[in-house]
Structures are given as C-alpha cells and as structure tokens.
C-alpha cells in the first residue's frame, strides 16, 4: 500500500497551473489543484481537473506513427524524423519556403516554442508560423 501526491505542472496549455497528482500503488488516481501555486492559487479548469484521466488514456499516442499505404503504422523516432526532414526539404526545394507553414502548441514550453519559430524562420526560411491558441 503506497499513496503519494506528486507536484507537477499541467500540460494542457501554456498557463502552467500547479497540480498535485494522487498516485496510489503506481497508478494515478486523482488530480488536485496546488493551493499554494502562484499561477492558479488552488483553482483549475476542467481540463486540468481531468489530467489523471487523460494521462492514462488508451487513445494516447506513445510512439510516432507514419502513414504507409493509407494506414498509420508505428515507427521509430529515427525513421519518422528522417521522413519529416526529407519531405520538408523536398517540398521547400520544389515549391519554395512559403509553401510550408508551422503550427506550434500552447502545450509546449516557452523554449520549445522559441525553437520552433527559429526552425521555421532560420531553417525553413518562412514566417508562416502560428500556434494552436490562436485557432
């Protein structure tokens, strides 16, 4: 019998609310807002309150998937990233950098989003970069 509450940060958006995950015998069973957290001060939205459910959802993608012959198939990171890099390069060379747009995510960290726009502008050569929170 083991129970603990683990402090973490909600992954759902860029607010960065403090969470406590209730973990019983290695299974996440509950979410509580961290009452002393400077961002959310003990409150959460419905998504934050449901972290313990979606974290363990069977529908979550755990490995990269590559579409082959119309179906998604599991791939390793090396192959998946290799495919993305070569196809992006081909499309840019054939149609120009502005034929590509990048959509980042509010679920990423500030630093990841910075890197993403840097990648789109400096590597791909386009200003077509946006994020999900503006959709």
């Amino acid at each position: 019998m083991e129970f603990k509450t683990v402090q973490t940060t909600c992954t759902y958006c860029g607010c960065g609310c403090g969470l406590l995950l209730g973990v019983m015998d290695e299974e996440i069973v509950a979410t509580l807002p961290l009452k002393t957290h400077p961002i959310n001060e003990g409150t959460l939205c419905i998504k934050g309150w449901s972290v313990h459910e979606f974290v363990q959802s069977e529908k979550r993608l755990l490995r990269p998937m590559v579409r082959k012959n119309g179906d998604f198939q599991e791939a390793d990171w090396e192959d998946a990233l290799g495919l993305v890099a070569s196809r992006l390069g081909e499309i840019r060379d054939q149609f120009g950098p502005d034929s590509i747009a990048g959509l980042s995510s509010a679920k990423c960290t500030n630093e990841e989003n910075y890197l993403f726009q840097k990648f789109m502008r400096a590597v791909m050569g386009t200003n077509n970069v946006d994020h999900c929170a503006r959709l």
């Binding site: 603990k4 406590l20 209730g22 961290l34 009452k35």
Partner: peptide, 26 residues
Amino acid sequence: MSGHPIPYLFTRPDELDGLYLGEVRY
C-alpha cells in the same frame, strides 16, 4: 515538499520532519 504543503500519507515517524500545521487546507 519543495516549499509547498501538500497532502501526505505518513508511514514512518522519520518523515514527520516536514509535517505542516499551517493555514492551507486540502
């Protein structure tokens, strides 16, 4: 724990060093 009072299931007396009796309620 890490500066935040959080619900904790004490199972050993030596964990009681961080026991919190302040105003935060869970």
